[in-house]
């Protein structure tokens, strides 16, 4: 490369030993028009000269120039494409270091992101676990309380006690005893003549008609209880128990153990006017 900081004289074609005018005389004679007219030109003349020089001429130098131009064009295109499809193995060391830096930086950032997202996921997962667990527990509690309060139907093993009493000798206190005995024996749900018996249930006697929670019940009285059927049955039949008491009154009572007793009667709870839950 021939670089000298001297302005106009430093262009590569200028380092010719002689200017074009004093060129090889033979060559000039062969192709007079090939000669570029001497001297610096400006404006229109410059354009004209550029066109004239660029005109195709069948000389060796012109062919060489064309070849070089083609080579230059091809090289530019190839280099551009090479740069576009540059792969890692063609990068210089500093480029590779920069790429590596970039990649490791991004990897660190992504790692951190992964950790954050995993933490979030775990939190959400455990949150879902506890809340679903809590929902299940709450549902269980609602079911239990619903059965105890009589707001839900219930089914399960239990007994059906039928009291046949043509002489209407069985009165309210006896039914109350039955209910008490069943509760003592662990009955979880009790139905007396189609009325659900709950904590607030009262038994009445209205001119020989038994009433439960104010609702008259038909005879024979059918009492259904859900609980451990052996315990319930023995609680009814023990000596001095309900069955015997009823028999002494001149009525008959029978206890049937059943594997599935279904109680569908419901109790409508009265709204609490005084009692409030303790927070």
């Amino acid at each position: 490369m021939t670089f000298s900081p001297q302005g106009p004289t430093n262009d590569p074609t200028n380092d010719a030993p002689e200017p074009a005018i004093r060129r090889n005389a033979a060559k000039a004679a062969q192709a007079p028009r090939q000669r570029v007219s001497s001297g610096s030109v400006d404006g229109v003349a410059a354009w004209r000269r550029l066109l004239r020089v660029g005109r195709p001429r069948a000389t060796r130098a012109n062919a060489l120039a064309a070849v070089l131009a083609i080579a230059l064009g091809g090289a530019i295109a190839a280099q551009v494409q090479l740069t576009n499809e540059r792969d890692l193995d063609q990068l210089s060391q500093s480029d590779l270091i920069r790429v590596l830096d970039d990649v490791s930086l991004r990897a660190t950032r992504l790692d951190q992101q992964v950790r954050e997202l995993e933490a979030t996921r775990d939190r959400l997962k455990s949150g879902v676990g506890t809340s679903s667990e809590a929902i299940a527990q709450a549902q269980k509690r609602v079911d239990t309380l619903g059965i105890l309060a009589g707001t839900l139907g219930a089914q399960g093993p239990g007994i059906v006690l039928t009291i046949r009493d043509p002489s209407r000798a069985v009165t309210g206190p006896i039914i109350l005893d039955v209910m008490q005995e069943l509760r003592d024996a662990g009955a979880e749900a009790i139905d007396i003549g189609g009325v659900r018996a709950v904590a607030s249930t009262f038994i009445g006697d209205d001119n020989g008609t038994l009433t439960v929670d104010g609702v008259g019940i038909a005879r024979p009285v059918v009492i259904k209880a859900i609980g451990d059927r052996k315990t319930l049955a023995s609680a009814m039949s023990i000596p001095g128990g309900i069955v015997e008491t009823v028999r002494q009154k001149g009525a008959s009572a029978s206890v049937a153990e059943q594997s599935t007793v279904k109680i569908t009667s419901l109790h409508t709870p009265a709204p609490m006017t005084h009692a409030k839950p303790v927070p």
């Binding site: 090939q34 570029v36 610096s40």
Partner: peptide, 15 residues
């Protein structure tokens, strides 16, 4: 160089 009037084919190729 063409515009300066000092263009030379050979010089161009060599340079």
């Amino acid at each position: 160089a063409v515009l300066d009037g000092i263009f030379n084919d050979k010089v161009f190729v060599v340079s």
